[in-house]
């Protein structure tokens, strides 16, 4: 897995080049979560709210809000679609996002309104890797692994 300033940046994911990663599923849905540098910038998360399944969101709207002692913010969806699942585990254990942001701490699965527009705001490959490195430099982020 690619790494920059201690931040893990999996090459097999798509990114909005800000907070969010996206993983396409076989059923036409996309699983979303927040990146390692984004969870680092957030600090130890203490509260998570995630929209309920069935909620429709326009591109750019927040599917979740995250709060730590030092930070609060939203997790935007990169494309319009319907929430088909959310990770209820995070509601009880928000800190899991700090521990396993690309795995068990996925946030929601979204079915896009139009599959043809999904990639308008998502990027992959070397372009995404370079942009994410710029993001990390811009916000002066140094990632450290949380073990618990």
């Amino acid at each position: 897995m690619a790494e920059f300033q201690g931040c893990q940046l999996p090459e097999d994911l798509y990114y909005d080049l800000d907070y969010v990663w996206a993983r396409p599923g076989d059923d036409g849905t996309f699983t979303l979560g927040v990146t390692d540098p984004a969870q680092t910038m957030s600090g130890r998360l203490q509260k998570v709210r995630i929209k309920k399944p069935g909620t429709h969101l326009e591109a750019g709207r927040h599917v979740a809000t995250l709060e730590s002692g030092k930070w609060a913010g939203g997790v935007p969806v990169p494309f319009a679609g319907e929430v088909v699942a959310r990770n209820d585990t995070l509601l009880e254990d928000p800190h899991l996002i700090n521990v396993d942001p690309y795995g068990d701490a996925w946030i929601a699965r979204i079915r896009p309104d139009s599959i043809s527009t999904v990639l308008e705001r998502l990027h992959g490959g070397s372009e995404a890797q370079e942009e994410l490195r710029s993001w990390i430099r811009r916000y002066d982020v140094q990632c450290m692994r949380c073990a618990d």
């Binding site: 750019g60 927040h62 913010g73 939203g74 935007p76 811009r138 916000y139």
Partner: peptide, 21 residues
């Protein structure tokens, strides 16, 4: 662009979406 102002500008972007919501 400074990391502080980059962070503050990003905060403004997020807030605009929250105000609309």
């Amino acid at each position: 662009e400074h990391s502080l102002t980059a962070l503050l500008k990003k905060g403004h972007q997020d807030l605009r979406v929250f105000f609309q919501e």
